[in-house]
Structure formats: structure tokens, C-alpha cells
């Protein structure tokens, strides 16, 4: 019994750690896509931010400067995406693809040129990283059944970006539904001409949304490089930006929906890791089947076989004035 609880808690804690970058990217996507800018460049921004934060953290020894660098680099890429999609009315998918490929290439170019370690950045000291935080009372509660292990290993003992992420989900949901900015943001994704006619700048709103998205993916990349790991390595985002995109769709472009989708996908991944090499009798559990679940579920949802996902009406459509 004790052991089962411990196993479950460990599984959930793993879920949370895996889901954190997904949640951050998905929340960024919530802002961007509700404002009408499709972003398949979450992956690239996260990767670039991971490299930038690892580089700066190793150079300065400060995780906070690393975080700042990660956010700045991701925001800069968001601005490029914004220029292409908002100012020059380019194809938003093409722009996102460009950002992903650019990030994949440039991180390696700079990593090799600066560090000569085959694309890695130097390993970080603990002082240069975000480490798990032990919340007060986790020691004394340890003996209490159920609550003890849950508190000590799930609620306590996470890194700062994990706590920040949970707070940001609340903030995202609240901003979209309760604030003037949120109302305008949703309006600009649905019907930009109504926003324009109301005397609000369509471009201004969309740039703000895209920049917020950059900030969120910046934190996600930083988390990968200096909280979850201790350096940058080649392609370390490993498609998580795309999974976040799938979660965004699976959550029907809503903050809480996307959050729970990320938790689900994170859980599946955590399970797959645990089942690697596990045999049930003579039968090896095909972990690939579990890994494929997020993609399959998203495909099925989009096809309308499980519920229906409707994007904001003008998501992905450049705004042009006129009749």
C-alpha cells in the first residue's frame, strides 16, 4: 500500500515536471491564437530560449539572468513572427515553420562555435540552476499517511518555474475572461474588423499577444535547460512544442482546457517512461503506443470523433482593412 502510494505520487510528480514546458507553451498559444495569430513556432522559440538561458546562466552563474535571456530571445523571435504575420500579412504557418527550422539550425551553429562541445553547452553548477524547492513542513508531515508523501514529493520539491507555471495558468484564464485586455484579445481573434471599428488597434493587440506568447515559451525553454536539465543539448525541445500545440487544440483554445490536455499528455509520457522495458508475461509493453496517444487523440478530436474543436473564427487570417 505504502509502496503503491509512493509509486503513484512519483508518477504524478513526473507528470507535472513533464507537463510544465507543455503548459507554458500552450498558455502562450492560448494568447497568440485567441488573438488570431497561429503559432506553430512554439517549438523553435522554446529551443532558442533553452540555448540562450543555458548560455547566459553558464556565463554569469545566475539562473535569473538565464531566464531573462531566454525570455528576451523568445520574444525577439515572436517579433519576427509578428512582423511576418501582422505587419506583412505573410502565411502564418510558413512563418512558424521558418522559426522552428531557424532555431534548430542557429542553436547548433552558435553552440558549436562558442563551446566546441558538439552542440552542447557547459554543464551548470547548482547555483546557476533553478533547483527543487522544499516547502516548509514537508519534513514534519512525512510520517502522515497519504498526505505526507503527496505533500513532500508532489506539492513540495518542485522547481520554481513549475510553481510559476501553475500561477500563470490562473493568470491566463483570469486575463482572458475577466479583463478588458482579454475581451479585446478574444474579439480580435474572432472579428478583427469589429475591433478596428471600435477604435482599437488590431496590430497593437496582436503584437502584444504574440509577445506574451514569446515570454511564456521563453520560460518554457529556460525550464528545459536550467531547471529540468543542467545544460543545453541538441534538439532538446524534442517536439514538445508540437505536443503543446496539440494540447492547445485538444483544450479547444481555452486556458483550462489546454492545461488539462497538457497534464494528460504529460501523464501519458510519464507512464511510457515507467513502462519502458516492462514485460507483462512474455509480452513487452509497446511504449510507442502510449507515446503515440497525444498525436492520435488530437487527430481524432480534430476529425470530430471525440467532441469538436473550433478555432477562433479569424485564427490564422491576416487582417486587411476594407470591405
Amino acid at each position: 500500500m505504502e509502496d503503491a502510494i509512493f509509486q503513484i505520487v512519483a508518477l504524478l510528480a513526473g507528470t507535472l515536471r513533464i507537463a510544465t514546458p507543455l503548459i507554458l507553451c500552450a498558455m502562450g498559444g492560448v494568447f497568440s491564437e485567441n488573438a488570431g495569430v497561429v503559432d506553430i513556432g512554439l517549438e523553435g522559440k522554446m529551443l532558442a530560449a533553452a540555448f540562450a538561458s543555458a548560455t547566459v546562466a553558464s556565463a554569469t552563474g545566475s539562473p535569473w539572468l538565464g531566464l531573462t535571456a531566454g525570455i528576451l530571445v523568445a520574444c525577439a523571435m515572436s517579433l519576427v513572427h509578428g512582423a511576418a504575420c501582422i505587419t506583412y500579412r505573410g502565411n502564418q504557418i510558413v512563418s512558424g515553420v521558418a522559426i522552428n527550422i531557424l532555431a534548430s539550425g542557429l542553436t547548433m551553429v552558435f553552440a558549436v562555435a562558442w563551446f566546441h562541445m558538439g552542440g552542447q553547452t557547459p554543464g551548470l553548477d547548482n547555483a546557476a540552476r533553478f533547483l527543487p524547492i522544499s516547502l516548509p513542513g514537508s519534513e514534519s508531515l512525512a510520517g502522515v499517511p497519504l498526505i505526507g508523501p503527496v505533500y513532500a514529493n508532489l506539492i513540495s520539491g518542485q522547481t520554481l518555474p513549475v510553481y510559476l507555471t501553475i500561477a500563470l495558468v490562473f493568470l491566463t484564464a483570469w486575463t482572458l475572461s475577466k479583463t478588458r485586455f482579454g475581451l479585446r484579445l478574444r474579439a480580435v481573434g474572432e472579428e478583427p474588423k469589429a475591433v478596428d471599428a471600435a477604435g482599437i488597434s488590431v496590430a497593437g493587440l496582436r503584437y502584444r499577444a504574440v509577445l506574451i506568447c514569446g515570454g511564456f515559451t521563453g520560460i518554457a525553454g529556460t525550464y528545459l535547460a536550467i531547471a529540468q536539465n543542467a545544460n543545453f543539448s541538441r534538439e532538446m525541445s524534442a517536439g514538445q512544442g508540437y505536443i503543446a500545440l496539440a494540447a492547445l487544440i485538444f483544450g479547444k483554445w481555452k486556458a483550462w482546457g489546454a492545461f488539462w490536455a497538457c497534464i494528460l499528455f504529460g501523464f501519458l509520457d510519464a507512464v511510457a517512461i515507467r513502462l519502458q522495458g516492462v514485460h507483462i508475461g512474455a509480452f513487452a509493453v509497446p511504449t510507442q503506443a502510449i507515446q503515440a496517444m497525444p498525436y492520435l487523440l488530437t487527430v481524432l478530436l480534430l476529425a470530430g470523433f471525440i467532441g469538436k474543436a473550433t478555432a477562433p473564427k479569424n485564427d490564422g487570417v491576416p487582417y486587411e482593412k476594407g470591405e
Binding site: 475577466k178 479583463t179 475581451l183 474579439a187 470591405e323
Partner: peptide, 27 residues
């Protein structure tokens, strides 16, 4: 305008206040 400038999935009230919200919070 000839083609209405309304957000179709918003309520009447939300459409009316859009751009004239009177403060950063909606309520």
C-alpha cells in the same frame, strides 16, 4: 457599416462595451 462589425460569439453586452470598457476589469 453595411457589413456589421459585431463579434458573433459575444453577447450583445460584450459587443457594446468592446472598446468602451471603462476600466481594466470588465465587471
Amino acid at each position: 457599416h453595411q457589413h456589421f462589425m459585431l463579434v458573433e460569439n459575444f453577447t450583445v453586452l460584450e459587443n457594446v462595451v468592446l472598446g468602451a470598457e471603462k476600466g481594466a476589469l470588465l465587471e
